Amino acid sequence: MSEPIISVANVGKKFGGLVALKDVTADFKEGQITAIIGPNGAGKSTLFNILSGTLKPSTGTLKFRGVDMAGMPQHDYVHRGIARSYQITNIFPNLTVLENVRVAAQAFQSRLNIWTDRNAYEDIEEKAFAALASVGLSERVGTPAKFLAHGQQRALEIAIALVADPALLLLDEPTAGMGPEETREMVALIEKLAADRTILLVEHKMKMILGLSDRVLVLHHGQLLADGTPKEIQANVEVRRVYLGQNDGYA
């Protein structure tokens, strides 16, 4: 059996006197789409931020491909192969689609060396175009990002993450604010991207999650309530009691 791409063991997180996570242990297999779900305040965002390096756990360990990530700055997570999107779209609205991705590609390659001419990096433009092709934005390269539809802006943010060529892509509510059609397009994009990388996502749309994911983790009050296939999660009486009945559609 292959080693997990990322794993957490007895991870906890406190914010002052508030316990946001307690003793969460989970291994994430390479090549799978895993969803993290739970009611509001369950600890989803906290766990997600720990997995991406945005937060450091108060207790427990985090390993990526067997390497202990404790104490590493967030940019090291990116350079080791972990990239993420955010719940709120995080782009430069006045830059073009291509410029948004090119800036990210140059930052990743040069580590923000402002004295290096971008033309010295021959593959930056190629990486930017490849990332945009991956998310279906090749025809919009010259469009200012603020003029994209909401779903296209979310796709642009994913393209920005892809220039780092991550082995693990974390998506924070990738369909937030989308209607049914944009949601279906995002699901198709995630399925396409999953052919080449491992994907973890936080989402609230249960019909989408159960149809898309290979595995689902359910958090409740900061603890791991259930971990299994979508069918196993649907059949779990306790999960249905605390969560599944609250949101059961694309809308």
Rank of each mutant, 00 (worst) to 15 (best):
A235V: 12
A20R: 07
I190M: 15
V187T: 15
N247P: 01
D214N: 14
F108I: 08
V218Q: 06
V237L: 15
Q32S: 09
T229V: 12
I209V: 15
G177M: 09
P174W: 11
A105K: 00
Q246D: 04
A188V: 09
V218N: 05
A130S: 11
H150T: 12
T46P: 11
D76P: 01
M208C: 05
T25E: 12
G211H: 11
G81H: 03
H75G: 02
G142L: 04
S2V: 02
E181G: 03
I36T: 13
T116S: 05
I37C: 00
K207Y: 00
L193D: 14
Y121F: 14
A149E: 12
L212T: 11
V67F: 06
D196H: 14
A167P: 02
G66A: 13
G41V: 02
Q234F: 10
A105E: 02
G211S: 11
A161R: 01
G177N: 11
G41F: 08
Q87V: 03
V78M: 04
A83C: 03
G41N: 11
M206K: 02
L212Q: 12
I91C: 06
N236M: 13
V103F: 02
Q32H: 11
R84F: 04
G53P: 10
K207I: 02
R111S: 10
L193Q: 15
D27M: 07
A188C: 08
M178L: 15
R241L: 03
H204K: 12
I88W: 00
R118I: 00
Y86W: 14
A251E: 15
L51K: 12
L62T: 03
M69Q: 01
E191C: 05
A9K: 12
A195K: 15
N236E: 13
I6C: 08
P180W: 03
A195I: 04
G136Y: 03
V8I: 15
E173G: 10
K146I: 14
E173M: 10
V97R: 00
L212Y: 12
I160T: 09
A149F: 06
L132S: 06
L21P: 03
G222E: 09
I160S: 04
A105Q: 07
T229G: 11
P93M: 06
A155E: 08
I91N: 08
F147S: 14
I50A: 10
I82T: 06
E191P: 04
H220N: 15
A26G: 03
I114L: 13
Q106Y: 06
E185P: 00
L132C: 05
L169G: 08
E3S: 15
